[in-house]
């Protein structure tokens, strides 16, 4: 993997990789990739679709209103909160 691909992956994950940490991150990442790529060697010819999900029972619940957080609790958690709303920067250009 090269620096450009790693930056693309980082952008998908909403992470920034600084120029200062790029080299070490790339080196570690390639080392880890090389190690985990061993998974290609595993013989999975006998594995069928049903083997992938051994516990395939659906778990259902009744469709009723349950507990949820109050506005007051949410207001305490949010980094910025005003008049009953979580504040974010403007997202529509005027």
């Amino acid at each position: 993997m090269d620096a450009k691909t790693l930056q693309e992956i980082a952008s998908l994950a909403r992470l920034k990789i600084d120029q200062t940490e790029l080299d070490s991150m790339l080196r570690d990442f390639n080392q880890i990739m090389e190690y985990v790529a061993q998974v290609q060697e595993v013989d999975v010819s006998s594995i069928q679709e049903k083997d992938l999900y051994p516990h395939h029972e659906n778990t259902m619940r009744s469709d009723t209103v349950g507990e949820s957080l109050s506005r007051d609790e949410i207001s305490k958690l949010a980094p910025q909160y005003e008049n009953g709303y979580i504040v974010v920067p403007r997202v529509i250009e005027t």
Partner: peptide, 16 residues
Amino acid sequence: DAYYGKAQKARAAIRK
């Protein structure tokens, strides 16, 4: 397919 898909199948092989 090459990574996550393959690892899921390999996990099933471990379980077996």
